[in-house]
Nucleic acid binder design. Structure first.
Lengths: 348, 348
DNA sequence: CTGTTAGCGCTTTCAG
DNA sequence: CTGAAAGCGCTAACAG
C-alpha cells in the first residue's frame, strides 16, 4: 500500500541498505548509485517512515520546545528563533529535523507530561524556555526527568531559565535581577521614592529575580521597602489593571509603578488612565522585556530589553550540536534599559 | 539498558501483550493483573517507546499544528486553543497525544517541508492555520500533500483558512470578507469618503478577502475605489508605519485608515501621531482581529473580533475525532465589529 | 481474560 | 563501495 524503502531499493536495483545509506548521507555511496536511488525515491514519491527509522536508530529527529504561554510574544519570539535554527538540514534521515513547540500553559504537570511525551518519542533534544516553578517537588521531578532524558541521549537546553542543579542541562539564562535593579535605579534617579511593584506569580523564578533586583535598588538608595507596595499576579494585562488599582487604593501618593513585564505594564497604564492619572506626569510606569508592542504604547514604555531572539537562536544551535555549550554549561545574557516616555520625574 | 515492555512483563509475570493491553487500555484486562502491571511500570520507571509503538500500530500520537508566525498572538491564541484540546487523555499509547506547533514563517516551502516531516512521523492529524498563499503551484503542491496525508490516515483540518479543493480537509474558515465590509460600512456611516487601506501581503487569501469586503462596502456606497489608496505590505507593525506615511503622502486629505490587522493598525497609529495627526479627530484608524493589546491602544482600537480561541478549540476537537465535522466539511465563523475610540466622524 | 507468534520498516554490523 | 541478515520495541491477530 504505502511505499517502503524496499520498494525504492527494488526500483533502483540496489539493496535496502544502500537506499538507507544514501538517504542518511552518512556513508560513502557511488555517485551513480546515489543518483539512481534518488530518482527512484522521486518517482515513487517515497517518504521515509519516521517511527521505523527512529526505532532502528534509537533516536528521532524530533526536537521539543516547551513554552509557558504560546499566545505571549515573549515565548513566541524565543520559540520562533529556536525553531528556525532547528528545522532544516542536519537531521538524521532525509536531512530534516522537526522542531516542535509545546504549550505548557505554565502548569508544572503539563510540563512534566510533555517531557514524558518527548522522552517517549526519543526526542533528539528538548529546549525549556521561561522561568521555572520553584516548588521543591516540581523541581526535583523536573530534574529527575531531565536527567533521564540526558541519559537516553537527548540534549537538554534551558533558554531564559535558571540552571537545573544535578543535571547535564545547558542553561542560557537572563539576568533578570540585574535588569530589575537597573530599572528601579533609573526611577530612583528621576526622584521617585514611593513606587508600587506589580510582580508576577509568586512561585516563579523570573518573578523572584526581578523583584530581588528592584529591592536591591531600593536598599542601595536607602529607601524602605514597604511590603504593601508589592502585589503579585499572573503575567497578564488583567493582573496589571487590577493590581494598579489595588496599589492606588493602598497608596494614593504613588509616583511610579514598576510592572513584572510589558503586558502587565500595559494593563497598569489602562488602570491609571481610567483613574484620571497622566503618564508620566502623575505616575511613571515601567515594564520588562521590551516586546514589540511596547514602543507603541502611548507614551512609549520604559522597559528592559531582553535578547529573546538571540538567546533562542543560540539555544537552537546548541540543541542541534552546531554550537559549543558555554563554559560551565551556563551563560547569562543581560538586559538593556530602554528609557522612553512612560517614565519621568515625579510631581512636585 | 533502557527498560522495555518485556522487562515490565517479566516483572509483572505476564506476557508482553498483556502489558501492551493495559497501557493502551483498549482491551479488557483483569483488575488485579492491571494493577500488577501498573506497579511494575512504576517501579521500573518505564516509558513506552513511541517510535516502536507507532511503527507497530502504523500511526502515532503526534498532531501537528502549522502556523505562519508563532510570535504573532493571532496564531498563538489559535495554536494554544488547538493544542489544549489535543493534548491530554485520548491518544493511543498511555493515553496521551502530543500536540506540537510548527512555525512556517509564512513560507510556502517550509509549510511543505513541515507537512512532509509530519507525514514521515505518521502524524495522527494535522491542523493548518491562517491564510494560504494563492500561487497556483503552491496550491496544487499543498493539495497533493494533504491528499497524501489523508490517504495515509492522517486527519487534516484547516483553521482560519479557506477550504482546500480536491482534498478531504475539514475547513473552519473566518468570514474575512464580511468583517472587512462591516468595518468599512461603519466608517462610511460616520461620514468618511477618503479612506486609505493598508493591506497584507498580496498573495494571501486573508489579504484578498478583507480587501474585497472593503471594496464591496465602498461600491455599495457609491464611493470610487482609488487604487492609489491601497498599499500592500507584510502583517507587521513596520508595514503599518511605513504604509501610513506613504498613504499620507499620496493623499493628505485622508480621513481614515483601515489596516489589514491590529498590528498593522498600531504601526499606522504611530505614524499618524508622529505626523502630528490626532486619532480619531484628524484621522480614524481601524484594525482587524481584536488581539488582546488592541483595547490598550490609546485610543482603543476599533476592529473586528474573530473567534480565534473558539475556532481553534473546535479544530482541535475535530482533529482528535471528538467532534463531528461540520456538514459539507466547511464551517464559517463570522467576525464581530468592535467600535471603540479610534474611529469617529471626519473633520468638517 | 491471557499467551504465542508474526511482523511493522528501517538501520547497522559483518562480510564481501 | 555494496549486500545479507539480524534485530530495534511494540502491537495485533489468533488461539486458548
Amino acid at each position: 500500500m504505502t511505499v517502503t524503502l524496499a520498494d525504492v531499493a527494488a526500483r533502483a536495483r540496489v539493496s535496502p541498505a544502500t537506499v538507507s545509506r544514501v538517504l542518511n548521507g552518512n556513508y560513502p555511496v557511488a555517485a551513480t548509485t546515489r543518483e539512481r536511488v534518488l530518482r527512484a525515491v522521486d518517482e515513487l514519491d517515497y517518504v521515509l517512515n519516521g517511527p521505523a527509522s527512529a526505532l532502528a536508530a534509537a533516536t528521532s529527529d524530533l526536537v521539543g520546545i516547551l513554552v509557558n504561554d504560546i499566545a505571549d510574544p515573549f515565548f513566541g519570539i524565543m520559540a520562533g528563533a529556536i525553531q528556525s535554527e532547528i528545522t532544516g538540514p542536519g537531521g538524521r534521515a532525509g536531512g530534516e529535523r522537526l522542531g516542535v513547540v509545546c504549550n505548557t500553559g505554565g502548569s508544572p504537570e503539563r510540563e512534566l507530561t510533555y517531557l514524558t511525551l518527548l522522552q517517549r518519542q526519543r526526542a533528539a533534544a528538548v529546549v525549556l524556555t521561561g522561568g521555572a516553578v520553584e516548588s521543591p517537588e516540581h523541581l526535583t521531578a523536573v530534574s529527575a526527568k531531565l536527567r533521564r532524558l540526558s541519559e537516553a541521549g537527548t540534549r537538554v537546553v534551558l533558554c531564559g531559565r535558571p540552571p537545573a542543579p544535578d543535571t547535564d542541562a545547558i542553561a542560557l539564562t537572563f539576568d533578570n535581577r540585574g535588569g530589575g535593579q537597573q530599572l528601579t535605579e533609573h526611577l530612583i534617579g528621576l526622584g521617585h521614592r514611593r513606587m508600587g511593584y506589580i510582580a508576577g506569580p509568586e512561585e516563579r523564578t523570573t518573578t523572584r529575580h526581578r523583584l530581588e533586583g528592584h529591592r536591591a535598588a531600593l536598599a542601595a538608595a536607602g529607601i524602605e521597602d514597604d511590603p504593601a507596595l508589592t502585589v503579585h499576579g499572573p503575567y497578564d494585562r488583567r493582573s496589571g489593571y487590577e493590581s494598579a488599582l489595588e496599589l492606588l487604593r493602598r497608596e494614593p501618593g504613588l509616583t511610579a509603578v514598576v510592572a513584572a513585564n510589558d503586558t502587565v505594564a500595559l494593563g497598569a497604564c489602562a488602570a491609571l488612565r481610567e483613574s484620571g492619572l497622566r503618564i508620566p506626569e502623575d505616575v511613571s510606569v515601567a515594564g520588562f522585556d521590551d516586546l514589540p508592542f511596547s514602543i507603541d504604547a502611548v507614551p512609549a514604555l520604559t522597559t528592559v530589553r531582553l535578547p529573546l531572539a538571540e538567546a533562542g537562536a543560540r539555544a537552537g544551535r546548541i540543541a542541534t550540536g552546531r554550537e559549543e555549550a558555554p563554559p560551565g554549561g551556563i551563560a547569562t545574557a543581560h538586559g538593556e534599559l530602554m528609557v522612553r516616555g512612560s517614565t519621568g520625574a515625579p510631581r512636585g
